[in-house]
Design a protein around this nucleic acid. Structure first.
Length: 794
DNA sequence: AAGGCGATGTTTTTT
DNA sequence: ACATCGCCTT
């Protein structure tokens, strides 16, 4: 301990007077990553190599060495969960000083904070609202319908995803390249511009805008950028492999001054390419930041050597990677187990019994708690078989990643009312709840209101007031609308002190000049809003089985308000922090997707459904070709490396796919597992494994030497080849020729959808009317001209 | 304004 | 197979 102090840089020596507990127990690489404070640093952290540890130690080091104040460190994560975790861990080293880390958060939360300060530079007020995807979709749909476009063929969903992708790439409407001009029936950019204009008039922005507006501001206002560069003296980025282009630009802008940026990530765990993540960002880091210090964390503290070997072998099949070699000091442990089943139900049955055995503690292994075990699936529909089975045998389980609390209908409705109370001029909010509960204000009444609002150029609430004055809405609807408007005005006044003063006050006078005041606390106000609006009552009168649960959720929502000072603060939080992590403390088996499992670890992991088409997913390969396959392989890598002690991979010979039974081929990833580290098990009733009569692990999962032989593996390899090979071959044949060949009217062939005719060409995508399966958008390289279909090897 | 019916699409998910 | 959605009927 005493002699290393002499070698440390000045800052650290100054610190040596105090102990530096955060350096204790770091391995040499971690230590290097912690101590290389200045200039660009890339920390390539393999699975289970203590990345968070190094990252938090680095923050602690920056602070205790006096390089930066807490408020001068920008620490960016992707999820709120990761941000919380980091805050917690840094707090462990620093105590209360973490509270000063005002800029530790997600890209979006930090961007929102920045944007509130400079909103006017992009035509927004600092009180702008952040739209959720419901609002976004509703808005786009209006735009599409206003143009009299068939929203069947050109759905708002498609437009939303196109615009999202563009925003992910950092393109504002005027920056969308010409190559995208054909998107959305040649009108994509036009709609994008219209959408942005509409957002601006609503004083709103979507998630993509949070980043994009920041970029716009930074690019246009050197002085502002400069001041933020000065403030953020050190930048840390977690999960850098998941950044998209917009996030990359955002980071570059902030880091390009001092270049004190430390990016942490693992190219082998990049599994979000489909939503815009660019692995290229991490692969390119050294070129982007010349002279960067690159640290590889390769010592794994999580898994047994067999598990690591299996994971390493699988991921070695990828071309596009920086390359790391995980190693561990651990000597012993179970091999990765591989087992085939007759069908998906049997797979679920077997895993259920296996879990019970492991829980009980058979076979000389210590018993595992249920919450030490997890089942990781490729697609959520696989979960069903497990849920069914576990319900019948009474095995407690928890599904992680289902619909989230704040996405439930009743929660969104309730929050929409809160939104109206805070900003009565929020047209999207008004639209959403004007007839929820039913107030007799159907399409016709709503159109009347729209008409009045548009004609007078005022928000919908005011349009509604005008329509009432004019007597344009009659009867029951009129009375109910009057009541709603009075309510909104009353709630707004009650929320008064907490709302940025000004704008809405005149509006309130217009819609309800003689309203009273009401509740004191925002919690009382919230309850009152739900009561007076009739929303609670609506669910009380609802006879469907889910109604009681929804009422419970509403109570929970009210409870959640307690930790906020006012409604506006709460809404901001919810817009950005839409998570619902169960605490994991009760003893249940976890069922989740491979994506959901990233960043987690479990002593015992089951990886079912390793079948070609399911995993790797056919769609991924169809849509993204070899790149897609590589991403699937990374997913396999993520799955295996979640396991600490026991990892069991399985596949079924038959599986029901969309109601049809299908014969399944074992995944090509099964062939990529290293035989020396895998133990092949035989299920009961097959290959002589049956008849032992017990449900012990020995009896059900016999060591099946006959099937552990090279011959068995070769047999498997031979079987899966006819499936996997032609797909790759096909792509090679077709690529290159694709762009030139297709024009509207050409008859084409697609391996899955059969024959069809090209209706439209949109860049590299074709809109094809398939003879059997109807119209579809298809990437051109996956179809061949019909007259060449026979040349395609099968 | 509610309920029924046929068409439709079915990987992964955050903010 | 199955759930969801939009439209259509009552």
């Amino acid at each position: 301990m005493s002699d290393f102090n002499a070698d440390l840089p000045l800052s650290a020596r100054a610190m040596a007077a105090r102990p530096a507990p955060y350096l204790d127990g770091l391995n040499p690489e971690q230590r290097r990553a912690v101590e290389a404070l200045d200039g660009p640093v890339l920390m390539l952290a393999g699975a289970g190599t203590g990345k968070t540890r190094a990252l938090t130690a680095r923050i602690a080091h920056l602070l205790s060495s006096g390089r930066a104040w807490p408020s001068q460190i920008l620490a960016v994560t992707f999820t709120n969960k990761a941000a919380r975790e980091m805050k917690l861990r840094v707090g462990g080293y620093l105590g209360d000083a973490v509270e000063g880390m005002a800029w530790l958060g997600t890209f979006h939360a930090i961007s929102a904070k920045l944007l509130r300060r400079h909103a006017e530079l992009v035509g927004l007020k600092s009180s702008f609202t952040i739209l959720d995807s419901d609002d976004q979709l509703r808005l786009l749909k209006q735009l599409i319908q206003a143009e009299n476009i068939d929203d069947k063929r050109w759905p708002a969903r498609l437009l939303a995803s196109i615009i999202d992708q563009w925003k992910n790439r950092g393109w504002r409407p005027d920056q969308v390249p010409a190559s995208e001009a054909s998107a959305f029936n040649n009108r994509g950019t036009e709609f994008y511009a219209a959408y942005q204009a509409r957002l601006q008039s609503l004083n709103a922005c979507d998630f993509g805008d949070l980043l994009l507006h920041c970029i716009t501001i930074f690019q246009a206002h050197a002085d502002i950028l400069e001041s933020w560069r000065k403030r953020f003296r050190y930048i840390l980025v977690d999960e850098y492999q998941d950044t998209n282009t917009a996030q990359y630009l955002w980071l570059r802008l902030l880091a390009d001054g001092h270049k004190n940026i430390c990016c942490v990530g693992d190219d082998d765990q990049s599994i979000y390419g489909w939503r815009g993540a660019e692995v290229g960002n991490i692969l390119r880091f050294e070129r982007d930041f010349p002279g960067a210090t690159v640290v590889r964390l390769e010592q794994n503290y999580r898994s047994t050597p067999h598990i690591l070997a299996a994971a390493s072998q699988v991921i070695a099949g990828n071309e596009d990677r920086l390359g790391k070699t995980l190693w561990t000091e651990a000597q012993t442990g179970e091999k990765v187990r591989l087992i085939g089943h007759w069908d998906g139900e049997e797979e679920a049955r077997w895993i259920g019994e296996e879990i019970e055995d492991l829980h009980r503690g058979t076979r000389g292994l210590d018993p595992f708690a249920l919450n030490q075990m997890a089942i990781l699936v490729r697609a959520s529909h696989q979960m069903r078989a497990f849920e069914d089975r576990f319900l019948t045998i009474g095995l407690p389980y928890r599904v992680i990643g289902g619909p989230r609390f704040y996405e439930r209908m009743e929660i969104r409705d309730a929050m929409t009312y809160f939104r109206l109370a805070v900003s009565p001029a929020d047209d999207l909010a008004f639209e959403r709840v004007v007839n929820t509960p039913r107030r007799g204000l159907g399409d016709k009444a709503q159109q009347t209101i729209q008409g009045y609002a548009r004609k007078a150029g005022v928000p919908l609430v005011q349009g509604a007031a005008l329509a009432l004055q004019d007597g344009a809405i009659k009867g029951k609807g009129a009375a109910a609308l009057r009541e709603l408007l009075d309510g909104i005005a009353r709630w707004h006044r009650a929320a008064g002190g907490t709302v940025p003063a000004g704008a809405a006050d005149d509006l309130i006078e217009v819609i309800a000049p003689e309203g009273g005041r009401a509740a004191q606390s925002h919690i009382e106000l919230a309850e009152q809003i739900l009561e007076e609006s009739g929303y609670t009552e609506m669910w009380q009168n609802d006879k469907t089985p889910e109604a009681p649960g929804r009422l419970d959720n509403l109570k929970e929502l009210i409870k959640a308000l307690e930790s906020f000072e006012n409604l506006a603060g709460f809404l901001e939080h919810v817009a950005l922090v839409m998570d619902n992590d169960s605490d994991g403390s009760d003893d249940k088996v976890s069922i989740m997707t491979l994506h959901g499992a990233k960043g987690l670890e479990f002593p015992v992991v089951f990886l079912p459904g390793w079948e070609d088409g399911l995993f790797p997913s056919q769609r991924s390969m169809d849509e993204s070709g070899p790149k897609g396959l590589e991403e699937e392989r990374r997913l396999a890598y993520v799955g295996i490396t979640r396991a600490e002690q026991l990892c069991t991979i399985s596949f079924a010979a038959n599986r029901r796919v969309y109601g049809q039974w299908q014969a399944q081929m074992p995944s090509r990833f099964v062939d990529e597992l290293p035989a020396a580290h895998v133990e092949v098990l035989t299920p009961p009733g097959l290959y002589g494994g049956a008849g032992m009569g017990h449900s012990s692990v020995e009896a059900r999962a016999t060591r099946a030497d006959a099937y552990n032989s090279p011959g068995w593996r070769r047999f498997q390899a031979a079987q899966s080849r006819p499936v996997s090979q032609p797909i790759a071959a096909r792509n090679m044949v077709i690529e290159g020729s694709a762009q030139a060949v297709f024009v509207a009217g050409v008859r084409v062939f697609h391996q899955k959808f059969g024959y069809g005719r090209v209706a439209e060409v949109e860049g590299d995508k074709l809109f094809i009317e398939f003879e059997k399966s109807g119209p579809r958008h298809i990437v051109a390289k996956f179809v061949v001209p019909a007259d060449q279909a026979d040349d395609v090897p099968f």
